[in-house]
Design a protein around this nucleic acid. Sequence first.
DNA 1: TACATTAATATGTAGCTACATATTAATGTC
DNA 2: GACATTAATATGTAGCTACATATTAATGTA
Lengths: 233, 233
Amino acid sequence: MAEKQRHSWVAIRDSIREMILNSTYGPGDKLPRDEEFAARFGCARSTVHRAMRDLAQSGLVERRRKGGTMVRRDPVTRATLNIPITRLEVEQKGSVYRYQLIRQSMQPSPPAIMANFGLPEARPMLRVEALHLADSRPYIFEDRWICLETVPEIASVDLSRESANEWLVRNRPYSRCDLRLYARPGTGSDSEILQSKVGDALFVMERTTWIGDAPITSLCAVAHPGYQLFTQG
Amino acid sequence: MAEKQRHSWVAIRDSIREMILNSTYGPGDKLPRDEEFAARFGCARSTVHRAMRDLAQSGLVERRRKGGTMVRRDPVTRATLNIPITRLEVEQKGSVYRYQLIRQSMQPSPPAIMANFGLPEARPMLRVEALHLADSRPYIFEDRWICLETVPEIASVDLSRESANEWLVRNRPYSRCDLRLYARPGTGSDSEILQSKVGDALFVMERTTWIGDAPITSLCAVAHPGYQLFTQG
DNA sequence: TACATTAATATGTAGCTACATATTAATGTC
DNA sequence: GACATTAATATGTAGCTACATATTAATGTA
């Protein structure tokens, strides 16, 4: 099968995927080494490597040095969520964005936030409660904790003008981001802020970020009733 | 700065990211070409290319042939969701998985499903309503439509034994997957199936997949009250 | 047998070259 | 000036080589 044309890594990837899906190689099976595949397809090992890296990333196979490549027993669907700055999300829908700082205070982190970070002890943090509005209607309410040890500059930012969301995204890179999504019924205090009714189903996004091992921020964002989160089209 | 050591693409990526984040290059700015960076860092263009590809994928920069590389004006948070086969999700939590086929019928696709696929006309489809249980308690209810033109074999699969979820994931690759997440209040018919109370907040995942341009399946999965979706740790 | 050392092996990465491709800029023609 | 043609340019990809790294298998030694 070793022809003398140029093979794209996409084509090689699709061929290998096809073989996995038509059970030439079943779940748990070990695949031939990259070199073997390269010889079979008549392409370079680097091309097979590219293909394999993609298959590994998409969750179909698992690779280990020396161990070789195995077809995963438990295929997963991997989807990439795009979570833009809230202001841009609102503006992209053609709405007018407004932002409202509700409360701001220095507090030691409570146990729930420490748990999000995986920290044993409380740390000094800045708590910021704020509301994002679209066309003057509540859009997302966020209750955010920012680690003052990792981001001391935040103390001198005027958070009534610029949202902590935007300032952090623009000024603080993160190396790790944990995300948790769920639904919860609206409570009385929600209805005040989000103009929701008690009993409305609210979409909640909890997000925690680190730079290296240092905690940056952990927040709970509650969206207005009817909010939907998409994968990028 | 052109030294004669080996530079990892991760190090190069971090250097460039650092420059972007400390405003050496601001949002909307054009970055030097890859070759220029390679000369500066004393590494090969391919190494810079790898670094840049990663930065582009993570949403920090945007690349266009001939156009060059630009720092994105609107940084986004990208998170990868792992959506395993429901059976495995349940078993991984240490629970006993059970599956129950509720209804199954051939029907032309209704307008809502056609809209998900972006199709102008109805197609013959198999509708499957099924319940996934964990420890005999309702876990996820799915209402699924499968395109019979793309997946004719599904008609001869015994869906009372194996879930359509599992059969499709194991037998049908997809090249595109759209995902939509939201919360909605539980209705009367939910409470029957999910043992939820009317007014409970339910987490809903709508998923639509294609192979090439051919529609495969579109489903609406409603989780039991309290369900949470995570990014992989 | 138990444990440390060494060899073998498959994937991972870096560097180079050559060519492909998309897009913009320059040029020519009417 | 309007439009088609051509050149220039930056990224994208394929192929090759060489070496790095992780992990398993084989071997040696007390």
